[in-house]
């Protein structure tokens, strides 16, 4: 009969050997670069789904639970535009041009929807306790999801497998892998990184280089003082809510092409949760924090995914658990997040 102590030591040795082997593999230039690229691609998606949420919370103190629904509507709308417009167009540059056209359509439509939501519903609740805004936006989520569900079922866009037709509108270079020296990069991952960078740069430039951006940053800190300086903070609220909704839609358009996400009604909840994780880790209400939070979550997700797929066991939910462990750790050690302040919200 085997001595239990020996068995434990053997198991420990095996695990240690497995870990050392895994670490050696992980640190190999090809694997490490691949994890970094995948991490950046995930970060790009996270920053896009979380930016609108953080802009809205930073200025208005409103936790918009309907944010994921706006992303989901953006995904469907972009898919519809692509399926309708692309038709028989086969040239990949034509498809790219249509995609950017779809981005503009989605941004304008979602910004309009966001503006209507702010003026018609949320504005009435600024003087009420935050629970009213949470309940309202949560209720909106249910209404928007059910509305979309009815529409997609009526037009036969579900089940999801049928809807994947929109994925077929992707240009060929995104559907294949490309070699850069020893590194193999998915075309879609490279596109996601570029679009994420462009979105961050555009938001950053808007906030720091325009007069309206200055109003937003001032209003985020002290809405009353900004108002006393002649800034129409209510109008700024509407613009920011519209902007946040538009960015959520643009994120949805990007996800429409990603087979991991796709366009589906559950996308609303699937994107809302990581968006909250990112903004909490980065610090609620700070755009800089959201970018940092997205990088942390994206890299952690890619790293743990690699480890669980290549070294440990393949359970898809394990990398997700690692991300939530980071969230728990952040809430214990620094509840205000990486760049957050103790109190945010302009009113």
């Amino acid at each position: 009969m085997t001595d239990p102590t020996v068995l434990t030591e053997l198991t420990a040795l095996a695990l240690q050997a497995g870990f050392v082997d895994g670490l050696t593999d992980f640190l190999g230039p090809s694997n490490l670069a691949s994890v970094v690229v995948e991490g950046l691609a995930k970060s790009a998606i996270y920053v896009m789904i979380a930016s609108g949420l953080t802009l809205i919370f930073g200025l208005m103190g409103v936790l918009n639970f309907a944010h994921g629904s706006l992303t989901m509507i953006g995904a469907y709308l972009a898919g519809v535009v692509m399926v309708v417009l692309v038709g028989n167009a086969t040239g990949q540059w034509t498809r790219m041009a249509f995609f950017f056209g779809a981005l503009v359509v989605v941004f304008i439509a979602l910004a309009f929807l966001g503006g209507v939501m702010e003026i018609g519903l949320i504005r009435e609740l600024y003087t009420r306790p935050p629970i009213y805004q949470i309940l309202l936006t949560f209720g909106l989520t249910l209404v928007l999801e059910e509305t979309v569900r009815i529409v997609v079922q009526f037009y036969g866009l579900q089940p999801i497998s049928e809807w994947q037709g929109a994925l077929g509108t992707k240009p060929a270079f995104m559907a294949t892998e490309h070699s850069l020296g020893p590194l193999s990069v998915r075309g879609l991952a490279a596109f996601e990184i570029l679009l994420g960078l462009a979105t961050v740069a555009a938001i950053w430039a808007f906030l720091t280089r325009t007069r309206y951006g200055l109003y937003i940053r001032a209003g985020s800190e002290d809405a009353e003082m900004a108002e006393a300086l002649g800034i129409d903070v209510r109008r700024v609220f509407t613009v920011v809510f519209a902007l946040g909704a538009g960015i959520a839609g643009v994120a949805g358009a990007l996800l429409m092409w990603d087979p991991v996400w796709g366009a589906s009604v559950p996308l609303a909840a699937e994107t809302l949760l990581p968006a909250f994780v990112v903004v909490i880790i980065g610090g609620l209400g700070t755009f800089r924090g959201t970018v940092a939070g997205a990088l942390v979550v994206g890299m952690a997700d890619a790293t743990t995914t690699w480890w669980f797929q290549n070294v440990f066991i393949t359970w898809t939910w394990l990398p997700e658990m690692a991300v939530f462990l980071i969230l728990v750790g952040m809430l214990v050690v620094k509840p205000q997040g990486l760049y957050g302040v103790e109190e945010v919200g302009g009113h």
Partner: peptide
């Protein structure tokens, strides 16, 4: 009036 209108 709103505060910003007073400031204006």
């Amino acid at each position: 009036l709103g505060t910003h209108e007073v400031a204006d």
